[in-house]
């Protein structure tokens, strides 16, 4: 099998890799936003509970959590489809990390602007949504890119729950061709291409949403 043929058969899994990455990243975003909103608007008890949740999610290996969700929950009578299992493990863990990135950015939002929003009669939720959130997101871009990359790089775990993404395709190929070296080199290249694509896409998006004078280095 030529290298080009190998690449071609692997590309069949690319769609699933992208799907897993995007779904988990989207889950992470929702989880992180929920955590940060609850932290900002909830009381002290809510804050402590969220601290504990984030600490736990950041302290467990993704693979262990994935196995607990996918192989463990059915034993308790709760069947979780593979994609959902990835979202509940990788997505949730990544969400915990992302919420910490958001927390750091939120602290950088100027207090004067928040005060100004209060003075104009905005409710805390309006102030959060209209003033703090947009700035927080822009300040978080570098951290979000890292997190997205990280999700992409943990996405091969999906093969352990039977999702036919790139790594799973590679395993199928190796069992029939004995060309493991070329196959896994090709796999590495595909992921690296995906990584570069993410960086390019982010640079493009960033250019379009940049605000002059804001968060420029």
């Amino acid at each position: 099998m030529s290298f080009a043929q190998i690449l071609q058969s692997l590309v069949a899994g690319l769609g699933y890799t992208v799907l897993v990455t995007l779904l988990c990243a989207a889950t992470a975003l929702v989880v992180a936003l929920a955590i940060i909103a609850a932290r900002r608007l909830g009381g002290k008890a809510a804050g402590n509970a969220l601290d504990a949740l984030v600490y736990v999610l950041r302290g467990i290996p993704v693979l262990v959590l994935l196995f607990m969700v996918f192989f463990g929950l059915p034993a308790l009578g709760l069947d979780i489809p593979p994609l959902a299992a990835m979202m509940l493990s990788l997505g949730a863990v990544s969400g915990a990390y992302l919420s910490e990135i958001f927390r750091g950015s939120l602290q950088a939002v100027s207090q004067a602007e928040i005060l100004a929003a209060q003075a104009s009669g905005f409710t805390p939720f309006q102030s959060f949504r209209l003033i703090e959130l947009p700035q927080m997101i822009r300040l978080s871009v570098p951290g979000m890119v890292n997190e997205l990359t990280s999700v992409m790089k943990y996405s091969p775990f999906a093969y352990t729950v039977g999702i036919p993404e790139i790594t799973k395709q590679a395993m199928a190929l190796t069992s029939t061709t004995m060309q493991s070296l070329q196959i896994y080199t090709a796999v590495g290249l595909l992921y690296f291409g995906l990584y570069r694509a993410i960086l390019l896409a982010v640079a493009y998006v960033e250019r379009h949403f940049a605000i002059p004078g804001f968060a420029e280095e």
Binding site: K153, Y154, T174, S180, L181, Y184, V187, G188, Y191
Partner: peptide, 22 residues
């Protein structure tokens, strides 16, 4: 850039399954 841009598990597989073929 290469090691930050590719999954570690893929590199481990490359060594574990790939190297024996040579």
């Amino acid at each position: 850039s290469i090691f930050i841009g590719t999954p570690l598990i893929v590199f481990l597989f490359l060594l574990y399954y790939g190297l024996p073929t040579i």
